[in-house]
C-alpha cells in the first residue's frame, strides 16, 4: 500500500471539496429551517445558525396539510413497496428460469417497454379508463413494476446456486414454497436494494397524484411541498414580493418552507445508511451480464 504522497493528498482534496459542495445546500436548508424570521432578515451568510429555533417545525406539525401529507406518503410508501416487491420478486424469479416455455417472449416484451412507450396522453387515458382518479392506488399500480429493477433481480436469481432448489424439490416443496422459504432468505442483499429503490420512488412520487388526485386531502407530502414552493417562489423572485410575503399570513415563510423540505427528505436520510451497504453489493451482482 502506498504511503502519503502529493497525488493522494490532491485526490482527497478534490473529492473533499466535491463532497462539501454536495452537502452544503442540504446543510444550508437545515440552518434556514432553524432560523427565525429576524435571523433571515438580518441577511449575510449563515454558516452557523444564529439561533436554534424550532418554531417552523412546530408550525408545520400543527398544520393539517403537512401532517396529512406525511401520513398519505407513509401509507403509499409502505403499501406500494410491498406490492412492488411481491410482484417484482415473483416475476423475476419465474423469468430467471430459462427452461420455462414462452419465457423469452415475455422477457423481450418487457425490455421493449424500456425503449418505446405510448407517451403521456395514452397512459393518462388508460389510467382514467381504469377509474383510478382520486384514489391512492394511482400512486401504486401504474408504477408497480420497474423493468430495470426486474432485470437486476432476475440476474441475481440467475446466480443463486441451483442445488439449493433441487434439494428442496426432493423434499416435495413446490416452486412457490421454494421461492418464499429458500430463495428469498438467501437473496437479502437484492431484496434490501429493491426495497430501497421502490420505497424512495413511492416516497418521491408527485407527478401521478398531481395529474390524477384533485382531492387535496389525498395529496402526498411531495405535492404539498411543491404547492408551497410554487406559491412562495412566485413571490420571492422579486424583493418587493419578499416584503409582502413577510407581512401576509397565507404565504409560507422561507424557514417554514425549509422545514418542509427537511421533513420530506429526512425519512430517506434515515433508511439510506442501513441499506447502502446492501445496494453496492446488490447492483454489482445484479448487473453482471447474462
Amino acid at each position: 500500500m502506498k504511503r502519503f504522497s502529493i497525488s493522494n493528498a490532491l485526490i482527497t482534496l478534490i473529492l473533499g471539496l466535491g463532497a462539501i459542495a454536495t452537502a452544503f445546500p442540504f446543510y444550508q436548508t437545515l440552518v434556514q429551517s432553524l432560523s427565525t424570521i429576524l435571523d433571515m432578515r438580518a441577511g449575510g451568510v449563515m454558516i452557523w445558525p444564529r439561533s436554534i429555533d424550532f418554531s417552523s417545525y412546530q408550525y408545520i406539525f400543527h398544520q393539517g396539510r403537512v401532517v396529512n401529507g406525511l401520513l398519505i406518503s407513509v401509507i403509499v410508501t409502505v403499501s406500494g413497496t410491498l406490492v412492488s416487491l411481491a410482484v417484482t420478486t415473483a416475476g423475476a424469479y419465474a423469468l430467471s428460469k430459462s427452461s420455462m416455455p414462452g419465457r423469452n417472449i415475455i422477457f423481450i416484451g418487457i425490455i421493449l417497454t424500456m425503449f418505446f412507450s405510448g407517451g403521456l396522453i395514452p397512459l393518462y387515458l388508460t389510467i382514467q379508463g381504469l377509474h383510478l382518479q382520486n384514489s391512492l392506488l394511482v400512486m401504486i399500480l401504474p408504477v408497480a413494476v420497474n423493468a430495470f429493477n426486474l432485470i437486476l433481480m432476475k440476474n441475481f436469481f440467475g446466480s443463486v446456486n441451483p442445488s439449493l432448489e433441487e434439494s428442496a424439490k426432493i423434499d416435495g416443496a413446490n416452486d412457490l414454497i421454494i421461492l418464499i422459504r429458500i430463495i428469498v432468505p438467501v437473496s437479502l442483499p437484492i431484496m434490501a436494494t429493491m426495497s430501497l429503490f421502490y420505497a424512495v420512488d413511492r416516497w418521491n412520487e408527485w407527478f401521478l397524484p398531481m395529474l390524477f388526485i384533485n382531492d387535496t386531502s389525498l395529496h402526498p407530502m411531495q405535492l404539498v411541498l411543491r404547492d408551497a414552493i410554487t406559491n412562495l417562489s412566485q413571490v420571492m423572485n422579486n424583493s418587493m414580493g419578499a416584503q409582502m410575503a413577510a407581512k401576509t399570513q397565507n404565504v409560507y415563510s422561507e424557514s417554514v418552507k425549509s422545514a418542509m423540505i427537511i421533513v420530506s427528505a429526512v425519512p430517506i436520510l434515515m433508511i439510506y445508511p442501513f441499506l447502502q451497504k446492501y445496494f453496492n453489493a446488490g447492483i454489482m451482482i445484479g448487473s453482471v451480464k447474462e
Binding site: 445546500p25 442540504f26 444550508q28 408527485w206 419578499a242 418552507k257 420530506s264 427528505a265
Partner: peptide, 18 residues
C-alpha cells in the same frame, strides 16, 4: 434519492433574491 421537488426547493432557496 431526493426528488426534484425537494431539490428544486433547495435550489430556489439558495438562488433567490434573498
Amino acid at each position: 434519492f431526493i426528488s426534484w421537488v425537494v431539490l428544486s426547493g433547495i435550489i430556489t432557496n439558495i438562488l433567490n433574491d434573498q
